[in-house]
Design a protein around this nucleic acid. Structure first.
Length: 254
DNA sequence: ATGTCACCTGGTAGGTGA
């Protein structure tokens, strides 16, 4: 069984690449972030023709998430219950007995900004909601664009990025809080190439120079951990002519 | 290199968010 996450940065632009990727990587479930589509514009027919069920939750211009799966996803939840978030950032469903949560964490802009305060509140609400989800679902996967680089080895220049957005102690503490609920970073269960990133800025020739961050993650519950046999970042789509700035991350389970 | 992309409004450019 394979699950994956990908921030596509506009599904309207990236749909052909998504269909190509799914044809080459027929995962069992895939969560998308930054679809940037209102619900009436979601390409259900094309994704259905590719052999996937899909649940989606979007808004105008910003954010937007989706959950694609081979088998129908059950018990769908959109956004963190009771948070009252106006931004479309979370979609969850149960796929083949696994609770799958796909999330587009707030960017946070800068540590002294209002957007950072929003990010902190959102992270706290997510943690408390996921705590309950784990009680209800022993087999759980939380994946998406976390907009957090958990450790210095997840940053191409940790000195330059120290204290900057994605790398602040507050964000990293929240990441550790999620692990503390009984989740594990699937990527770090395995030996990985050094300088493994999931996002490269469009600017500054960052991809060509491999200057990136690892901010897209797949966390699995303790019950799933023994079943994880691989976790990889697929850089191939980032080499496309008109790529998303993020690469997909894929986890394989027995 | 100060090097981009996607979206909006309101237009043949500027602002925002990432």
């Amino acid at each position: 069984m394979k699950f994956a996450t990908w921030n596509v940065n506009s599904l309207a632009v990236r749909l052909p690449q998504l269909l190509d990727w799914l044809a080459a990587n027929p995962v069992d479930a895939l969560v998308l972030q930054e679809t940037k589509l209102t619900d009436d514009k979601f390409p259900t027919l094309e994704i259905g023709a590719a052999g996937y069920q899909v649940q989606w939750f979007g808004q105008k211009t910003y954010n937007g998430v989706a959950l694609l799966s081979r088998t129908p996803a059950l018990d769908i939840v959109k956004n963190i219950p009771d948070l009252g978030d106006e931004q479309a950032r979370v979609i969850a469903g149960t796929v083949d007995g696994v609770r799958v949560i796909g999330a587009y964490f707030p960017n946070g802009q800068a540590p002294d900004s209002e957007k950072f305060a929003y990010k902190m509140g959102w992270l706290e609400a997510l943690r408390e909601w996921v705590r309950g989800e784990l009680k209800a679902h022993e087999r759980l996967v939380l994946m998406g664009d976390f907009n957090i680089a958990p450790e210095d080895r997840d940053v191409y220049d940790p000195v330059a990025w120290a204290g900057q957005i994605h790398c602040t102690p507050q964000e990293r503490a929240h990441f550790q809080d999620l692990l503390g609920l009984g989740l594990v970073d699937a990527f770090r269960l395995f030996e990985q190439p050094p300088k493994s990133w999931s996002w490269w800025d469009y600017r500054n020739l960052a991809f060509r120079k491999n200057q990136g961050l690892r901010i897209d993650h797949i966390l699995v519950s303790e019950a799933l951990r023994p079943r994880v046999t691989a976790c990889e970042i697929d850089k191939q789509p980032r080499r496309n002519e008109r790529p998303s700035d993020h690469a997909p991350v894929v986890v394989t389970l027995q």
